[in-house]
Amino acid sequence: MASGSGFSMEEFESLMATSDVELLKRAWRNEKSAPEILQFQSSLVLRSREQIQLMEETIEEFTKSGFDPLIVSIYQMDMDRAQYMCYENMKSYLDESVLSKLPTGYQSDLKQSNASEENDMGSFLYSSYVPEPNLDTFVFCKSDSSIGAIPLDDSADEIVDLVAGDLYVLRYKSIKPFVENGQVDLV
């Protein structure tokens, strides 16, 4: 979670009521729709993996103690769905950090990654080969809560009022901070 514009109590509560699987789904949607690599949700993914592991053990118990196969299969399906979301979250992150090590020409699809700047090699490769992500591109987004007026261009001449639940197509850079702090979701 990056820049900290404050959450209202309401938003905080709705966030607390949101399951980890739901959060994984949001992170995945955002990552897929964003023109740049977003912060990897490591604690969320770690937490979910622990939950999945616990569930694996529970399912094993169920099977051993002769539970109704229907119930076992439902728990299994639920776990598979969570696992898939975990995998997708890790994949988009891994794919791009691995791809970033490829020579030019293989990189047309790449976005800039903060993560790769952590090591010198990555940072060198990035600075020399990887095109800047196009933050000017347009994205589809939605917010659960009303954000209020946000500037649409550098001169801040034009503003838009983001109304809760409505769908907008905006330039990514104008809503980037809200995507980073979770107030706006890309769809």
């Binding site: 589809f140 649409l152 261009d153 838009v160 409505d166 769908l167 907008y168 197509v169 905006l170």
Partner: peptide, 11 residues
């Protein structure tokens, strides 16, 4: 056009 609103457009 700096912004387009597509209220109620589905996924």
């Amino acid at each position: 056009t700096h912004a387009v609103k597509l209220k109620n457009l589905s996924a």
